[in-house]
Simulated scan of single mutants.
Amino acid sequence: MDSSSEASSMAQGLRIVRLVADREKWGRRLLGVSQLASELDMEQSRVSRLTQELCELGLLERVERGPFRTGPRFFSLAAALNAGWVRESRTELEALVASFGLRARVSVREGFRVILLRASSNDAVPGSFVKPGMVTPVWCTGSGRALLWDEQQPAVQTLLQDVNFIGVGGPGAAHSPQEVAELMERDRARGFIVAEEEFEHGVYELAVPVRTAEGSILAALSVLGSRAEIASGIDDIVKALTAAAERLGSCEGRIRGAAGRKDRAG
């Protein structure tokens, strides 16, 4: 294959990945080969070949012959390309581990899905599903609800109106947008998220939003452990978690500011 053909294939592959990612981001119906071909005005056979290659690379994934969604490699690459606060988050996560022995995570939101960007070194064992790109629901995880912190009930209702709550989450999970909004109101009064067995049995999660210098939510920082581990030092944990989130937010601002100064100088 000559260089022009390679460039063409790469451009078309990136168009496919972008379309899949955008539809996930906005909670729209996911697409199969024929729908992707129609949306992108490409030959179905070519889309079939490119999506197979993208799945092999881990940039897309597909369950059996269902629609395509972004794969784990897509999110790990996105995290690796961010040389700023995501990289700096490793230090904050390991500091939380050293102080409390809890698992720690940094996550972002894509529509009604939570995407794990980075986890602490003690958060996974060989073969575990906990790795960058892991997807969890926004409505029944501490990190997810931290990412919804600024959303009022009408926005939460709209976001979750087509979600199937049945069979998802642990015994503490919400089962309707109204229940999610009520949990949010409870936790806003506390100043932090407490998710008690909302996603997994026996797992308690504390979470806070990470904000940019302008005040918008950039990510969520959370710690997970048993009830005994969390309850025994909740005040100290929340204090450390909040301070770490503030440092990450300020780190993002400093890096963005430095990049802007560099661009202007150039």
Rank of each mutant, 00 (worst) to 15 (best):
Ala119Val: 12
Thr158Phe: 08
Met10Trp: 13
Lys131Cys: 00
Ala207Trp: 11
Phe192Ile: 04
Glu94Met: 07
Glu151Phe: 14
Gly167Phe: 12
Ala79Cys: 06
Gly32Leu: 01
Ser222Ala: 15
Thr70Glu: 05
Leu60Thr: 00
Ala155Glu: 15
Leu36Tyr: 00
Glu252Asn: 03
Ala181Phe: 10
Asp187Cys: 07
Leu102Trp: 14
Ser45Phe: 09
Arg49Asp: 07
Val108His: 00
Pro177Ser: 06
Ala245Tyr: 02
Phe112Ile: 08
Val114Gly: 03
Gln157Trp: 09
Val208Met: 10
Ala265Tyr: 13
Phe75Pro: 10
Val180Asp: 11
Leu54Cys: 03
Val203Ser: 02
Val86Met: 04
Arg188Thr: 05
Val138Ala: 15
Thr242Ile: 02
Val20Asn: 00
Arg65Met: 04
Leu50Lys: 03
Ser232Pro: 00
Leu218Gly: 02
Phe68Ser: 00
Val130Asp: 07
Val114Gln: 15
Leu14Arg: 13
Glu182Ala: 11
Asp2Val: 05
Arg247His: 06
Val208His: 10
Arg103Ser: 14
Gly266Tyr: 11
Gln12Ala: 14
Cys55Ile: 01
Asp2Asn: 14
Met1Gly: 10
Arg65Val: 01
Met134Trp: 04
Thr91Glu: 15
Asn164Tyr: 04
Thr51Met: 08
Arg227Phe: 14
Ile217Asp: 05
Leu31Ala: 07
Ser99Glu: 15
Ser250Arg: 13
Ser176Val: 06
Gly257His: 09
Val130Cys: 08
Val106Trp: 01
Gly111Tyr: 10
Gly27Ala: 11
Arg29Gln: 12
Ser107Trp: 05
Leu54Phe: 07
Arg261Pro: 00
Leu148Asp: 09
Ala98Val: 01
Phe199Pro: 05
Leu93His: 03
Gln52Phe: 09
Ser226Asn: 07
Ala231Phe: 13
Glu252Ile: 01
Cys251Asn: 06
Ser89Lys: 02
Ile237Ser: 05
Glu246Cys: 08
Glu200Arg: 10
Glu182Asp: 11
Ser3Gln: 11
Ala37Thr: 04
Thr141Pro: 03
Ser222Cys: 06
Ser45Cys: 01
Leu59Cys: 08
Met42Lys: 06
